[in-house]
């Protein structure tokens, strides 16, 4: 899901380009849900009790934290708050978090008893 939303977002932003309601909805998920979701996935490798609607609520909260802090970083960086640094930053963050979470989950799964 994370990979496909990332790919779709990049497609919409750089190749399809137009302002559509699909892009609008996708960007809401991409900014307000995905960063937090990937972080929650990472956290659930330690804290297994988070699930269901609770996961959605925490994903939203953590997304706000991640995106706002990232915007503050960009604000004081030479790049500023622009489209490309935002896309690169959010995509990289979500992919890395998911990768680490997946590796940790597989390690736990195949742990020798």
């Amino acid at each position: 899901m994370v990979v496909s939303v990332n790919v779709l977002m990049i497609l919409f932003v750089y190749f399809l380009g137009e302002q559509t309601y699909v892009r609008f909805l996708l960007s809401v998920v991409y900014v307000l849900y995905l960063p937090g979701y990937s972080l929650v996935e990472f956290i659930t490798t330690f804290e297994k009790s988070i699930k269901g609607v609770e996961k959605i609520a925490y994903s939203f909260g953590l997304s706000i934290v991640v995106v706002i802090l990232f915007c503050f970083l960009l604000n004081y960086s030479p790049w500023g708050i622009r489209l490309t640094p935002l896309i690169i930053g959010i995509s990289l963050f979500t992919m890395i978090c998911m990768l680490v979470a997946t590796i940790r989950k597989y390690k736990t799964l195949f742990k020798p008893i």
């Binding site: 932003v13 302002q19 892009r23 609008f24 809401v28 900014v31 307000l32 708050i81």
Partner: peptide, 9 residues
């Protein structure tokens, strides 16, 4: 601003 930029709206 981030949402506006990414949504292209």
């Amino acid at each position: 601003s981030a949402l506006t930029l990414i949504s292209g709206s």
